[in-house]
Write a protein that binds this DNA or RNA. Structure first.
Lengths: 227, 227
DNA sequence: TCGGAAGCGATTGTATACAACCGCTACTGC
DNA sequence: GCAGTAGCGGTTGTATACAATCGCTTCCGA
């Protein structure tokens, strides 16, 4: 990564920094889906010219966070239900692959780390500490991504997770922490045992909230334009 | 897509078109991995100013085809063997997911189309028409991606396939067409039967073998320095 | 009153001008 | 002779100026 120098937030940011700043704003819902991203306003706000703003917007566009229409400017990408489902399915696949690879490649130290995080997760569930569970759950999943020893997979899943997180607040997860923790346990066992196929399946099912026929129906409905 | 007007190849291309032109050049190895992409030269070549060139380069950078270092310009991204293998693994997962979803969602018409393409593939294999097999094989796999009814998956896999195709010429796939055709057959049956899990596994293994073989060849190539 | 087209304002797309930065070379001093 | 530095050429990064395009409003006519 770049220097940590940009701690001084009043220094005029350069295109590079702008990408991250705008990205954060989108992920934290400072900029909301559908919102217009006017080049001049942004230029004034950051005290730079339109040029670096444009570059940043183009970058965000090709990473999927922003939507640019020719001669009509940029808006924060608004995802339809269908697109969200599609992306969740791919995310589930990423997670499944990470578990498969981890089952084959994790070192003893990796496994210890993973088990520790799993136990922390379980403890959070026990206490019904939702915030803590959410945090630890993320770290647990990350440990499995790292264990996969596939940097490309890690990058892609991180990008996708960011995009999905924009909508996290709208997704009131109906899942119980206890059930999640139980599933974590089974995944941990499969990975530890080196059972790649089992690890893959358990993980994909664990993550794929909308795996079932519900998704098929929703997609079909949307295909005929019902909103 | 956009207008078909840009058939006139001497019209000065706009940033949008430039992305596709440069992309094609990279995919067709007119621009080779590691090659420098000088803004001024490109600007002269296409008779535009540096501005649209820059935008195109940034776009290609975030789609992974180009590598941009701050103040040091852009080069065609050169992938290491390890990165290629990682990407092939993810690609296999994409294909597996497409088969899984197709098994659940394909219409009767989709299935007919898929079977037709499979039979064409088999015929090509029979005749040992390697070029024809390659073409038809791609179309066959595409038909399954389409059958998945997951546009996001299709887009991601297309992007990834493009990136991998840059190195296709280095990958003289040692697989027999006959074996591929046979595996296609099993996949077709699983999809038709609606056996999602089976379709997924068969497809992933079908493509993953390519990855394994590719890895070996690439490792050999890297030993002598890829150029 | 409603439909349509032309003009206007505003925004994006492109070109050019200028500033900042990097790498290389050559020179100087030890 | 070699190390280090200062200067130079060239490339990228940013700012500004200009052109093209789009949507909206307004005006005209039926």
């Amino acid at each position: 990564m770049s220097e940590v120098i940009d701690g001084a937030k009043e220094a005029r940011p350069s295109a590079d920094s702008l990408v991250r700043i705008l990205e954060d704003d989108i992920l934290n819902a400072v900029l909301r889906p559908g919102e217009r991203l006017d080049e001049q306003s942004l230029a004034r706000r950051f005290e730079v010219s339109r040029t670096p703003i444009r570059e940043a917007l183009r970058h965000l566009a090709s990473s999927g966070l922003v939507d640019i229409k020719k001669n009509q400017g940029a808006t924060v990408k608004r995802l339809t239900t269908g697109e969200l489902i599609e992306m969740f399915q791919v995310m589930a696949e990423y997670e499944g692959l990470s578990a498969r690879l981890s089952a084959r490649r994790m070192t003893k130290e990796d496994v210890v780390e993973m088990r520790k995080l799993h136990e922390e997760c379980a403890a959070m569930a026990e206490r019904e500490d939702y915030g803590g569970f959410y945090e630890t759950n993320n770290i647990f999943h990350d440990s499995i991504f790292r264990g996969s020893r596939n940097v490309f997979l890690q990058m892609e899943s991180r990008k996708l997770r960011n995009r999905l997180n924009v909508y996290r607040r709208h997704i009131t997860t109906p899942r119980s922490m206890t059930k999640s923790a139980y599933e974590h346990g089974r995944i941990v066992e499969a990975v530890t045992a080196g059972d790649a196929a089992q690890a893959h399946d358990l993980m994909r099912e664990h993550v794929d909230l909308l795996a079932g026929a519900a998704a098929d129906v929703l997609l079909a409905l949307e295909a005929e334009g019902i909103e």
